[in-house]
């Protein structure tokens, strides 16, 4: 008779290496180039804002879970990521209380009040950004902090998209590289695209949302932008207004985007349409943040209509 007893559990008995922690870490790695560029471009203040934002998010999450007697999960890095994303969405000249307020709002109001990780109905960082944007419109749209290598006329403090809308000339190369006014992390289209490609390559995000988003917006701009088939004008639209940050990092947030493959395509198209409408027909030059949080609210509906067909139950299988 064998006296030993072994662990039992339901199958499967092996697990993939990827974990919530490793996924969050990968997204953070993908954001690093654009973050470092933002720090270089906007200086020490940008660094301080980023640190404050991350610290606030982590501490808020810890404090909430501690006082609510919940399992402490700050180790999963999701709060760090929220903090980083929030900082990337702030102009470099905002006062230091701004990321703190935003961080508390993101974690406590948007995330934890709805049940914590996986349960929030909109992207915490974007929710906080929009909250700050509405509450402190002046400070949140003041982009007068002159970037390091900025050749752009920063005295007006206008973002390239705002300048574009006002009919001024903008330098596409500077927009592509990121040498323009804007929030800390949104300016460098090239580095954000690289980060996005890293995520797609690693299988963290799928191509569906970013590609459908960017493609739809492109078509919209070409059709309704009033510039006809002007490639430079289109490229300026694509490089500006945090589109790349939004398309690759915010819209693809797992929690607040559709989980179904078809739903992701619908979501991307909707984002493109809304962003186009906001930018071209709306009062403000930007529209990425609002388009994303608005579409976040539609996710349950989109998923309802895009449930995959079970194998062997009709459909094209």
């Amino acid at each position: 008779m064998n006296e030993q007893f072994y662990n039992v559990s339901a199958n499967p008995h092996v697990r993939d290496k990827a974990s919530t922690h490793s996924i969050m870490l990968d997204v953070i790695i993908a954001l690093l180039p654009a973050t470092l560029f933002g720090w270089w471009n906007f200086g020490v203040n940008a660094v301080i804002l980023t640190v404050l934002s991350i610290a606030t998010c982590v501490i808020s999450e810890y404090a909430w879970q501690y006082f609510m007697h919940k399992k402490i999960t700050v180790g999963d890095m999701s709060a760090v990521l929220t903090g980083l994303l929030l900082a990337m969405n702030l102009p470099a000249g905002v006062p230091y209380w701004m990321p703190v307020l935003g961080g508390v709002f993101a974690i406590i109001v948007v995330k934890q009040l709805f049940g914590g990780l996986g349960q929030n109905f909109m992207n915490p960082a974007l929710g906080a950004r929009c909250f700050l944007l509405i509450s402190f419109a002046g400070m949140m749209t003041d982009f007068s902090v002159k970037g390091f290598g900025t050749t752009f006329d920063a005295t007006t403090g206008a973002t390239p998209l705002a300048a574009l809308k006002a009919g001024q000339a903008v330098n596409l190369k500077d927009m592509f590289l990121g040498l323009t006014p804007g929030t800390i992390g949104e300016t460098s289209a090239i580095l954000l695209i690289l980060g996005g490609l890293y995520l797609i390559f690693k299988g963290i995000i799928s191509w569906r949302i970013p590609i459908c988003y960017i493609a739809t917006l492109s078509i919209f701009v070409l059709l309704f932008g009033g510039h006809g088939f002007d490639a430079v004008y289109l490229a300026q639209h694509l490089c500006g207004g945090g589109l790349m940050l939004g398309a690759f990092f915010m819209a693809t947030d797992y929690v607040t985007s559709p989980i179904t493959p078809k739903g992701q395509i619908v979501f991307g198209i909707l984002l493109g349409l809304l962003t186009g409408i906001f930018r071209i027909f709306g009062g403000s030059a930007e529209g990425v943040s609002y388009a994303i949080i608005f579409c976040n609210l539609l996710v349950p509906l989109i998923e309802r209509f895009t449930t995959p067909t079970a194998f062997g139950k009709g459909g094209k299988n």
């Binding site: 662990n7 559990s9 008995h13 092996v14 697990r15 974990s19 919530t20 996924i23 999960t73 999963d76 999701s78 914590g116 990780l117 996986g118 349960q119 799928s206 797992y254 929690v255 985007s257 989980i259 179904t260 493959p261 449930t307 995959p308 067909t309 079970a310 194998f311 139950k313 299988n317």
Partner: peptide, 25 residues
């Protein structure tokens, strides 16, 4: 490996859907 990892919240990454051979969620 099962005992070594504690289940956490679903982050809605959709991986279970993409691997399901029965096309389920």
């Amino acid at each position: 490996e099962v005992a070594a990892c504690e289940p956490g919240n679903c982050i809605r990454c959709g991986r279970c859907i993409s691997v399901c051979p029965a096309g389920l969620m």
